[in-house]
Design a protein around this nucleic acid. Structure first.
Lengths: 342, 342
DNA sequence: CTGTTAGCGCGTTCAT
DNA sequence: ATGAACGCGCTAACAG
């Protein structure tokens, strides 16, 4: 169905009876005589001419594209961050190129060498695992990179992260205040950056509260997903009987709640639940789930702004931002409140 | 932190003591003598050379990028589709460029003219509303476009859509079978393509069942989101007392359920709920929500494949696929089943 | 098998 | 104010 062939600067110039330079000027709003402007505009309209983005990129040395790589587009947290980043960079005149990297670090390494081929002007990356090879590639990149999440020592990149260990502590302290005695923990894979940080936070918080560390009270889901959460929760409840469960994210939390109901137990009466990320899921759930707000949209926005800043000024000093988590209390962790909520 | 400046074919050629053509050939695996291969490889390694994507695109006349435009990245349905499309096109060697267009059709029009500037080789578009101007632009595009969703008459583009009107009918019929008498309907904006189709399906299904059409039993959320759903559900229950509610998507359904609980009513005993899209949300909810599966990932996959097909063969005949919906029954619509589920 | 050359479409000096 | 010519980095066609 293509109405006409693609037209170029040369064709417009011929039709308007001027030089290609004049056409270029008119298209870019540079000074020209009224007469030339009109003839060019008309010729361009008639031919349906639009400047070619690729040629312009080659000339300008920039693509006006920003790459975003996240582990799992299906996770509401990442979806929300993507939305926010898309908003910010679009407003600044950039397009967003998406990579769903999954868990495999090798995909991210490929992405980094692609980036050096210059398909985008910069990258926002949120890696789950840092392999040695990934770190090498990160250091070797010539293009601006902003990391969302913790950064291993020795890597000097702009980055913005939440103190998720502290977030877990907020959850544990809250549950202790609520009089809960046996506070269990459903984590994701512990060999990931967030998994490690959250485990650390759990152990430290329990210790600071003077509580014993019970190995039976901890399980690791194979993944930060709902399905993995169902298995993990079943495993946990098979081996112990907690009166509270802290979960490493909202997906795991809602899975835990589901399993609890299936076993004829009640939330929060028998078991209190706290999730993490404060996504819509936590609010949608019945009862609504108390969750640690890791400020994902704020982190996303700051990451985008950090990248835009460095794009403008590549020499800017490295900036590392830590965002403080905040506990959002809902019915799933407060006895006597669930009914009121209903 | 950039270790060295960016290097080009010329630099590598100088260092290896060969011509740029030879370097190009080696990089592309074309025949060359063993000696040249080695020298080029070494020089390239030492300089950290990687071919420039933009220059290659200009030469090849293609960007290896596919654009995807959806209304709302925050909606789990779209997130899932995005995931699937990303999977398919990545495997075919394309990158995915994301546009979150929101509701405003003008953003999509801008996108189409951008597309004609050639920043991507093709586009997958899922528009909510078709304005006249959008249709004009769609027809005028030189690049392949695949539409997800219904298409207005007179537009000949590859497209794949679900029969959502039929989906609503499945829901209504199911509720009638369950003995429900007053089947209400929470729709999204009725001036959108999906909103119109679903309203149509609701009215027809009720008529075919010989039920009266009651204006009080229908409300339109201002948006297909959870928050809009809360308002709509409250409005509905303020003006009538249904014993079943069909919702235009899962977000609206879970919102309705939340409101029902807040009012001290039970699901499904007092009011049965059916959602649409069969996202994880439906399964996560408590009780789990019966939902019409519109095969979103299948639609996404087919859309991606249609686009890839046309990219390979621009002359291929236009293909329009309609996917049949399927009802997934869960606890929210079957009396006496909710407890069993618990 | 290898080097030279001509564009891909555009922005941008230089002259005029 | 305008036009001619060059180069961004790469690939492909043509010589040799």
């Amino acid at each position: 169905m293509p109405p006409t062939k693609k037209s170029t600067l040369v064709l417009v110039a011929e039709r308007a009876g001027v030089s290609i330079a004049s056409v270029s000027r008119v298209m870019n709003g540079l000074p020209a005589s009224q007469q030339v402007i009109e003839r060019v505009r008309q010729a361009a309209d008639e031919l349906g001419y639009v400047p070619d983005a690729t040629a312009r990129s080659l000339k300008a040395g920039k693509t006006d594209q920003i790459a975003l790589a996240v582990a799992d587009v299906g996770n509401p947290v990442y979806a929300g961050m993507m939305h926010e980043i898309s908003r910010v960079v679009t407003k600044a005149g950039y397009r967003l190129v998406l990579s769903s990297t999954g868990i495999d670090p090798h995909v991210q390494i490929d992405l980094l060498s692609s980036l050096n081929r210059g398909f985008a002007d910069g990258l926002i990356l949120s890696p789950l695992r840092f392999t040695e090879e990934l770190c090498v590639q990160l250091r070797a990149s010539r293009l601006p990179i902003v990391i969302i999440g913790s950064l291993p020592a020795g890597i000097e990149l702009d980055n913005v992260r939440a103190d998720s260990g502290r977030g877990i502590a907020l959850a544990v302290d809250h549950l202790v205040e609520q009089g809960r005695q046996r506070i269990a923990f459903i984590n994701g894979p512990v060999d990931t950056a967030p998994g490690a940080a959250r485990l650390n936070g759990y152990l430290r918080a329990l210790t600071e509260q003077g509580r014993p560390l019970n190995a039976d009270a901890q399980v690791n889901a194979s993944d930060f997903t709902y399905r993995a959460g169902l298995k993990a929760a079943n495993a946990l409840l098979d081996q112990t009987t907690p009166d509270a469960i802290v979960c490493a994210n909202d997906l795991l939390a809602v899975a835990a709640m589901k399993v609890i109901f299936k076993r004829g137990l009640r939330v929060p009466d028998d078991i209190a639940i706290v999730g993490m990320d404060d996504t819509d899921i936590a609010d949608l759930a019945q009862p609504a789930i108390t969750s640690v707000d890791l400020r994902s949209t704020k982190r996303a926005r700051m990451a985008a702004k950090l990248l835009l800043r460095r794009l403008e000024n590549p020499q800017a000093p490295v900036e590392q931002v830590v965002i403080e988590p905040k506990l959002v209390v809902r019915a799933s962790s407060v006895s006597g409140c669930a009914e009121a909520e209903l």
